[in-house]
Write a protein that binds this DNA or RNA. Structure first.
Lengths: 202, 202
DNA sequence: CTCGGGATTGACTGACCAGTCAATCTGTCC
DNA sequence: GGACAGATTGACTGGTCAGTCAATCCCGAG
C-alpha cells in the first residue's frame, strides 16, 4: 500500500507540474520534457503514468469539470430563488479561480475555449454544464420569475459566456485582480444577467 | 499594373483558401501544403506572398478586426439610445457571421478565444473593442440610462462574452442555426444584457 | 525579338519532439 | 537473501513540417 501511495503521489506530482507548465507556456508550446523537468522526474516516467501528453490535459480537465458539474447539480436542488442559484454557480467558479488560478487558466484556455482541439473532444462534458444551467432558467420561467422570451439555452450560454469572459479578463490582465474584485464579480455577473444593465424606473 | 493586379488576386486566393482550411482543420492541425493545395497553387508561392504561416492568420484577423472596430466607432457617434447602440454592434457581428461563417469561426476560434497563442499577440486590438464598448456603457451611465453599480469594463466584457458565446454555440452546433435564429439573436442578446432575465413587476 | 524581373514551382533540409525501450534501481514478500 | 514487480531512468528513433532555394516560367517593355 505504501508503494501504491507513492505511485499516486508521483502521478499527482506530474499532474501538478503539468498545470504549472501548461499555464505558463500553453499546452501546444510546451514539451513533455518541460513537464518532467518541472516535476523533477525523468522523461520516461511521464509515460509510465500517462498514455500521452493529451491524456494529461484530459485528466486535469475531467477531474475538475466533474467537480463543477456536481456543484451545479447540488445548487439546482436547493430551494432558493433562481437568481441565488446562478449566484451560487458564479461564486463556485470564481472561488475555483481564486483557489487555483493556474488550473482554471488551463481548463479555460486549453479546453473550454479551445473548441477546435480539446474543446471538441470534451464537448459533451462542456455542454452538460450548459444543459444544467438551462434547466435552472427553464424552471425559473415556469415559476414566472424569469421572462420567457429568452430561450433557456440562450440564457445559459449568455450566463456562462459572461462568467468565462470575466475569468479570461483576469487571466490576461484585462481586469484588475484581487479579493475585492472576486467578491464583486460574484454579484455583478448575476446582477448584469438577471437584473440587466438598464435602470428600472420607480 | 495588370501584373500587380494578378498578384493581388493570387494573394487573395491564398488568403481565402486559408480561411477554408483553418476553419475546417484548425490552424495548428493544418499544414501549409494544405493551404497551397486548396488554393491550387505551388507550396513555395505561399511563401512568396507571406513571411510565415502565422502571418496568414495575422492578416486575416487584422483585416476583419479593423472593420469591426470601425463599425463600433461609427455606431458610437450616432445619436441613438445606448441599448440601440449595443443592438447595432451585436447585429454587425451576427451579420459578419452570417456573411462569412468560416472567417468568423477562424477569428474567434483561432485568435479571439486562443488567448495563449494568437490572442496574446493581438491582445491590444482585441482590448480596443472592449474599450470602445465600455465607453458606450460609461456614457449611458452618465446619462442615467444604465445603472452605475456595474463598472463599464465589466459590462463590456459581459456583453462581448455573451455575443461570442452565442457565435461559438452556432459554430459548434450547440445552438440551432438559421436566418430566424440570427435575427432573434440580435435582439435576445441585448434584451438579456440590458433588460435582464428577470421579469419586471408591473 | 530579347531581355529583365517578378511569379511560380516543388524537392529538399534542418529542427523539433512525442513516444519507445532496454537497462537499472528499489522496496517487499516469502 | 534472493527474486519478483513495479518504479525510474534517459538515450534514441521515426515522423512531421515550416521554411529555403535554385530552377523555370512568362509577361511587358524597349
Amino acid at each position: 500500500m505504501a508503494r501504491t501511495q507513492a505511485a499516486i503521489d508521483k502521478r499527482r506530482l506530474i499532474l501538478d507540474a503539468a498545470v504549472r507548465v501548461f499555464a505558463s507556456q500553453g499546452f501546444h508550446t510546451c514539451r513533455v520534457s518541460d513537464i518532467a523537468d518541472e516535476a523533477r522526474v525523468a522523461y520516461g516516467l511521464v509515460y509510465h503514468y500517462f498514455k500521452s501528453k493529451d491524456e494529461i490535459l484530459d485528466t486535469l480537465f475531467l477531474e475538475r469539470w466533474d467537480i463543477l458539474l456536481h456543484a451545479i447539480s447540488e445548487v439546482d436542488v436547493l430551494d432558493i430563488p433562481p437568481r441565488e442559484k446562478l449566484q451560487a454557480i458564479a461564486s463556485f467558479i470564481v472561488e475555483s479561480y481564486r483557489h487555483d488560478p493556474d488550473l482554471m487558466k488551463v481548463i479555460i484556455v486549453e479546453v473550454t475555449r479551445a473548441a477546435n482541439t480539446f474543446g471538441r473532444t470534451h464537448l459533451p462534458q462542456i455542454r452538460q454544464a450548459y444543459v444544467q444551467i438551462a434547466a435552472i432558467v427553464e424552471r425559473a420561467q415556469r415559476d414566472r420569475v424569469f421572462r420567457n422570451d429568452v430561450t433557456p439555452d440562450f440564457a445559459a450560454l449568455a450566463f456562462y459566456g459572461a462568467v468565462e469572459q470575466v475569468l479570461t479578463g483576469w487571466i490576461f490582465s484585462l481586469l484588475p485582480v484581487g479579493d475585492r474584485e472576486y467578491e464583486d464579480a460574484k454579484t455583478l455577473i448575476v446582477e448584469t444577467i438577471c437584473g440587466g444593465l438598464e435602470r428600472v424606473e420607480g
